[in-house]
Amino acid sequence: MHDGSGLIAVQNLTKQFGPVTAVHNLSFTVSPGSVTGFLGPNGAGKTTTLRMLLGLVKPTSGTATINGRPFQQLGQPGRVVGAVLEAQGFHPARSARNHLRVYAAAVGVPDAQADQVLGLVGLGSAADRKVGGFSLGMKQRLALATALLGDPQVLVLDEPANGLDPEGIAWLRTFLQSYARMGRTVLISSHLLAEVEQTVDQVVIISRGQTMFYGPLDQLRQSQQKRVLVQPSDINALATALRAEGVQAIEQLPDGRLAVSGVDSRHVADTALKAGVSIYGIQEEQVDLERLFFQLTSGQYAGYAPAPYQQQQQGGWA
């Protein structure tokens, strides 16, 4: 049986669909007590990885375990891990309550649990409506309710914010954080860092099926060097003075400013004063995680910018 640790471990996971390598030698672990973001652009292999973790897709090589065991050996998987993979797995003619009662029976929990999770995700009043009439956001909530039926220790969600309105996203954020704070494990995928930035503590960033970054979000923030953007009266004089002090990372921006990395704004201002250069404006650049995310994941399936619209040369009758 599983060890009840709440640990998700992915090791050297690879999946090949014919000639396409969807996931390539991926490794990371997810610990209980925190919300981990699983990030990457569309097609990076997130869904395939989660489906391998949940025993739905067979890995070509490598292992993915929950509580030290592959999914197939969990015994009663519904009691260990709950998953929201897509908001599509519903029979449209079945009511929300009946949908949950089907899976409550499979997981082996009392029927009352169906109503309880419906209330938990805020669908109590829609319990007897057919799922076919649900909005995408409601289906997401129902999918989450299904995942929660067995009161699982591990929660895995694939793009759960899709279709949720801002209020729903805020609710989901609070819910997942409190779930993790109970000592449980939450793994949530997204193709938008900004979407989960306020929710997650840890991130795993993948691109082209490979791990690009794996660690606490704060560490990712610190990994980017701050830049000081300064507009001096004499660019060359300031650059020379800074180089004389050993600052090498100096870049001239198209707008005429200098971007200086590796020092703070005070240092730049002091140097300018000594060199007799006036400063018209100075600011420290904020860490832009989204830009960092792009840098880490850029390239895959990048499209070309649209060609500029060229007006056709028309005949002379116009």
Binding site: L54, G75, P77, L85, E86, Q88, G89, F90, V107
Partner: peptide, 14 residues
């Protein structure tokens, strides 16, 4: 066809 098989397999021991 309705993709409910995913949840079916996620809630079954095998």
């Amino acid at each position: 066809n309705r993709r409910t098989i995913t949840t079916t397999f996620l809630t079954a021991p095998s």
